[in-house]
Design a protein around this nucleic acid. Structure first.
Lengths: 340, 340
DNA sequence: GAATTGTTTGAAATCGATTTCATCATGTAT
DNA sequence: ATACATGATGAAATCGATTTCAAACAATTC
């Protein structure tokens, strides 16, 4: 194995330069020579060496998606959107799983520094604004999904957390609830903060005086939601509904309710966020907020690629997309016959 | 940006060769010079160019995992096993999502040919034995998870499909079932074939005469399982239990049962395979077969890396690992109080 | 048919690291 | 103090592609 361009050139009776021209197709070659070269490539089973190619051309035509956790199905839809858009633009996509560790995230960003990749998309990153800005300022291309940052060179796409959180609370109030608990994710996440903000706004819109003991933190995962819920039950606070900042934590709420023999939705209404695939399979099915995940991935990828290729004509770099409340059994007194 | 080794050398007052020696740490350097070089690297924020490095050293210290579908949580555990083992050996891992398309799988294998990666691990690949053998014969390193192939250079790890399938049927027979339907995945998959084999063996062990109409194909996904089940119901065949070759199809069975008003497990027992995360959340919880996914990934990665580094002392290349039947509500008349 | 223009092609430089080989400095043995 | 072995360093070759520049060739015009 290991056929090189010079072998192809020899076989076709031309120079390496000509083979390269056929390969990159950005220079004129006679149909006849092109044919000879193609045949030689075919016969030898030649594959251009990527390292040599990247070194000379100073680009790898590859972008990378860094996700917090590849187990979480929420991210995979976004990835598919990114992948397909990238493919349409002849870019390859590699996926890196940070395993919820900030250090791994940083480590993967080294792929940018060492020029293995031409750009990176961070989904729900744990890095802080300053770290992200610094990377961009060094001239590297990055984009953010599920996060907004003030920086003219970084494309961002995210959902309006405040808006849908208000809708969630409105819905619960409509169902007759007035004592609603909020389960936050970890504090560094902007999503935690903004969903809380929407929750508080909605409470005040309905003239419901807020009580600090209505808030707990579940760290965005199932065990966290479970623990938080147990704490709340044990404190003997009165409440009839829970708004969990994501579906994973809502699953933890279910588990806690099963242990404390609390029936959902009769004794406690539950709402989550993400429209995680599991949310429609649990009993009772979980009311949640759906986001246009695929589209978010695709749009962001497009903007990042635009920017990488210097198409600054696409001026819009920040996208706030709409989401949709999906009402299922866990929050409604009247259980619907079919669920979607 | 774009500091090169020569810049570091200039700043440290040494030659590029010395900087390289400090970097790769496989040659002696005076502590004093090493110090100067380290300081220069630090101050300039130097990152060695990966393309140049790979080109010269003829390796990328990267392996790639190709999965059929990144949405399926079954694969993510395997990936984590691979990742951590690779990391421990200073290899990087990139993940490629074939989106259930054979062409995408082949396309990603080009990463091997163009030497972007040093090796590839295929999980539940759709390629046939011949295609896989050819790649290996060209001198590329590949390993297989969930698939066995006759070829001395390809490490494989898989579960004994026949064995656990027999256990599944034994369990159902113990519960009093004698008319058991089998839902196969797509025909090319060896898993389909072997799970069928175990099913047939078990039937004959229990002197249950096999009927061809007990078998249908659900393509390993939820819609497939749903359609297959509808066909079976409509044929008015008598049966009291379903063995679905994976959990996704079992979910389809649940959906079909809901439509036909058939109660699980009272009127129909259901068993799946994979111990998909969802299986414990559905109602009734799903009896399934668990595989040591993380360990499978880790073991295979270790063997592949061994082979890549020429450590042929690890003679064993094929691993058949045990799996475990997890009995939940969907197959037992007595519903347990708690589930795991 | 000669002069001019435009198109194909090849030789050689280049991308940025690693590695070989020769050189120089240092320490040890006589 | 001299000879020799050892260790640290630098100059230059190298990995395999792309790209610049100039030369060769073909096509067009007068």
């Amino acid at each position: 194995m290991d056929i090189k361009i010079i072998d192809v050139a020899a076989k076709a009776g031309v120079s390496p330069a000509t083979v390269s021209r056929v390969l990159t197709q950005n220079a004129a070659v006679t149909p006849k020579t092109k044919d000879k070269v193609m045949r030689a490539i075919e016969q030898l089973g030649y594959h251009p060496n990527a390292a040599a190619k990247n070194l000379r051309s100073q680009r790898s035509m590859t972008i990378c998606v860094i996700v917090p956790d590849i187990n979480n199905a929420y991210f995979s839809e976004i990835i598919k959107g990114i992948e397909n858009m990238a493919y349409a633009n002849k870019y390859k996509v590699i996926i890196c799983d940070a395993q919820n560790q900030k250090e791994r995230e940083l480590e993967y960003l080294n792929l940018l520094m060492d020029r293995t990749i031409d750009g990176a998309i961070l989904i729900a990153t744990q890095l802080n604004d300053e770290q992200i800005r610094q990377i961009s300022d060094k001239g590297y291309h990055i984009g953010l999904v599920g996060r907004y940052i003030e920086h003219e060179r970084i494309p961002c796409i995210y959902t309006d957390n405040v808006k849908f959180s208000r809708e969630v609370i409105h819905h619960l109030v409509e169902q007759g609830h007035r004592r609603i608990v909020f389960l936050s994710g970890y504090a560094e996440a902007i999503d935690s903060y903004e969903r809380l903000e929407g929750y508080l706004k909605a409470l005040s819109e309905h003239q419901i005086p807020f009580r600090p003991e209505w808030i707990d933190n579940g760290n965005f995962d199932e065990p966290g939601g479970y623990e938080a819920m147990k704490r709340l039950f044990d404190k003997k606070i009165e409440f009839t509904a829970v708004y969990a900042a994501n579906d994973e934590m809502a699953l933890g709420v279910y588990k806690a309710c099963a242990e404390y023999n609390i029936r959902i939705p009769e004794q406690l209404a539950v709402v989550g966020v993400d429209n995680n695939r599991i949310s429609k399979y649990v009993t009772p099915s979980l009311t949640t907020v759906n986001q246009p995940k695929y589209a978010m991935g695709a749009i962001l990828a497009e903007k990042l690629l635009d920017q990488m290729n210097g198409n600054v004509f696409s001026e819009k770099r920040v996208f706030k997309v709409d989401s949709e409340l999906i009402i299922r059994q866990s929050s409604s007194s009247l259980t619907p016959t079919t669920t979607t």
